[in-house]
Amino acid sequence: MTAAGQIARKEAGELLLDLRGQAWLLAMACALSAFSLLLVGSAELSLLDNAQVVYDMAGIATALGALLALVVGVDGIGGERERGSLVPLLLTPASRGAILLGQIGGVAMAWAAMLALAVPFLWAVGSTGQNLWDGMAVLVLLGTPVVLGFGLFGLGLGARLGSTRAALLAGLIGLLVAASPLLIGPSLRQSALGGMFDAVNPFSAAVNGYDLVIIDSQGLLSQWMSLAHTLAWLALMLWFAHAAFRRVRR
């Protein structure tokens, strides 16, 4: 197995087999449960159209996935540094590129675990309505670059900032701002400033794509602009993480 594969496997093992990682997954599952229970517990929310609920759930899953990826990303370098295991890792024959690739693999595993958690919830709230499968497909298509981008953002912050706490705080503020379309919704697009924010925010590109596919029943293939937007975000964050990790000293 390559060095990158070994690092990715170690990261995935920490998430799926370690108590700390399982606690994160439990927290994510509880958040999804709270949201879905709110849907059936509130008379008004339970009257939402299935497509609207699937759209909301896809947005929540993306936000939670980005949060998990951010934490895993910050922990991947900043956490290793605080635990004193970063220097030994850098002294191994593995190249920095391979180490970064392995850490990205860990982030990807975290997103895969989040998707696996989200699928039963999406089925539970949306199986009696329309566009459930398209909703899952667009979640994978547009959510993956957004979430991996936030994981890389966390990796870059963990490498760039000396303190894990500072990296987490900066990352969480960035995520909170980016995820604001979930709270504000389509009204964001109605002002010039909101429109500009929408145009550069990868989270907006993803949730607008979810809206078009799940609620407006547009085809997946017609979302190439949103996909290009989210891929540009992923490429930017890859560059940021790579540049930040190159500066880390042994």
Partner: peptide
């Protein structure tokens, strides 16, 4: 038409966290 069926949501919303919790107990 009832849109979100609580019969489908409740088992998932309660069952999945319990399943992960049980997995944590086994790990511990």
């Amino acid at each position: 038409k009832p849109l979100v069926e609580s019969r489908r949501v409740l088992p998932v919303a309660l069952g999945l966290p319990l399943l992960i919790g049980a997995g944590m107990l086994v790990t511990a």
